[in-house]
């Protein structure tokens, strides 16, 4: 299923406890590092996947999804920071590993690969940032003047 609604994304973020960041960087200036740190700060168990690094943010980096799944089990969400060309191979690996949910960051768009993941029964979010979406529903995004798109007269707590 390709998730295209705010409520669908909020549901994924609510239910997930473990996240694999594929293409994680240890460079504090990179987007993947920002997202990895943010997800950790917000209570997710985060695993880095990058064959070129030993460690990311002080923790072990796994060479690929297969190695990660073997050692830590299937993560609830696989968050992808890779070039669109790398997506078909990654999707095959995710299917083989039994991954249920693929989250593709901004610009990680490859229509054929998304189609393939969808028809193999995976839940897919495309061209969205996990950090931004988490902050949107927790209303932390609103604290910086960004539009959360939330229209509601129900009181809910702010998560920062």
């Amino acid at each position: 299923m390709i998730v295209e609604t705010p409520s669908g994304r909020a549901d994924i973020l609510d239910k997930a406890k473990t996240v694999a960041v594929v293409g994680a960087s240890d460079n504090p200036a990179r987007a993947s590092y920002f997202v990895l740190r943010y997800l950790k700060m917000h209570g997710y168990a985060v695993f880095a996947v990058n064959p070129n690094l030993e460690r990311v943010d002080g923790q072990k980096s796994y060479p690929d999804l297969t190695a990660l799944v073997k050692e830590r089990g299937i993560p609830d969400v696989v968050d992808v920071f890779r070039r669109p060309e790398a997506l078909p191979g990654l999707v095959e690996e995710a299917i083989a590993c039994g991954v249920k949910t693929l989250w593709l960051q901004y610009g990680v768009v490859n229509a054929a690969a998304i189609q393939r993941a969808d028809s193999a029964g995976l839940t897919v979010v495309a061209d969205r940032c996990m950090k931004v979406e988490h902050a949107r529903f927790g209303r932390a995004l609103s604290s910086q003047g960004f539009d959360s798109g939330i229209i509601s007269s129900r009181r809910r707590p702010v998560e920062t």
């Binding site: 740190r37 932390a140 995004l141 604290s143």
Partner: peptide, 14 residues
């Protein structure tokens, strides 16, 4: 720890 994240723009908050 949270202050550091805020000041390096990795977290949203006031």
């Amino acid at each position: 720890a949270q202050a550091k994240e805020l000041f390096s723009l990795r977290a949203y908050g006031n």
